[in-house]
């Protein structure tokens, strides 16, 4: 008979750095402040904007307008929706909400016979928040993109060192760096190294109720979104 009473636990890609243990309340002291936003839900959204009903369905389900401009990010209290290519977006939200959304979206796509889909990527991605006066300089130490030029509400896909990342600017208070799980150790070490001249500190995660990303941090239950 199978063993009952399983107690699944999650470990985020940066779990092994034990960031919680060294996290401090953030202050404006010239240092670079950073932490991982663990266990968010991520889904790749694919669709054809020329197909009637696609954008409407996405907005109806998520409350987020489908961004059509390259690099644009839609944000709301329940998450963000980022343009990543002409027929591809990344949806980030609380894990459970994301599971609900993707189920509704896929159901809606099927019902309307749209050539559209969601692919759960929650296990494969993570986000780090990077703040402090020189946070853009830290990125300039590592990547060739003109990070200062990223408008608020936009993201870019680029390379830091030898890893592909997305850099997301929401409200001007720091940036979010999105990267793949298997590259997480490398990216974190790279950010930490680049921040060294300014001082590097791990900040406590703020439970900001209406923030498009921080608000999604509430402890999630084991994901049930897998088909």
């Amino acid at each position: 008979m199978p063993k009952q009473g399983f107690q699944p636990f999650m470990e985020s890609p940066l779990h092994h750095f034990k960031l919680d243990a060294e996290a401090q309340a953030r202050r404006a002291d010239g240092r670079i402040w950073c932490n991982e936003l663990p266990h968010l839900g991520y889904a790749v959204l694919r669709g054809d904007t020329a197909e009637a009903g696609f954008a409407q369905l996405v907005q109806q389900v998520t409350g987020l307008a489908l961004p059509l401009q390259a690099g644009a990010v839609s944000q709301g209290p329940q998450g963000v929706l980022m343009w990543t290519s002409p027929d591809e977006w990344l949806l980030v939200s609380h894990r459970q909400r994301l599971a609900d959304w993707t189920a509704q979206l896929d159901g809606g796509f099927a019902a309307q016979q749209l050539f559209a889909q969601t692919v759960d990527s929650s296990g494969g991605l993570t986000l780090a928040w990077l703040g402090g006066t020189e946070h853009i300089t830290v990125l300039r130490h590592l990547g060739v993109y003109d990070f200062e030029s990223i408008p608020l509400g936009h993201m870019v896909s680029t390379v830091l060192g030898k890893a592909t990342v997305q850099v997301i600017r929401l409200d001007g208070d720091g940036v979010f760096v999105l990267f793949r799980r298997s590259f997480a150790d490398y990216v974190w070490r790279l950010l930490r190294r680049a921040a060294q001249p300014y001082g590097f500190a791990v900040c406590q995660l703020e439970a900001r109720g209406d923030h498009p990303l921080f608000a999604q941090l509430a402890a999630p239950r084991p994901s049930l979104i897998l088909a």
Binding site: P13, A163, Y186, R193
Partner: peptide
């Protein structure tokens, strides 16, 4: 530059590494 030592090259880890 920074591409030396532990950041010389990408080391990819699986979730079970620990």
């Amino acid at each position: 530059g920074p591409h030396v030592g532990e950041t010389f090259d990408v080391r990819r880890y699986t979730a079970m590494h620990a």
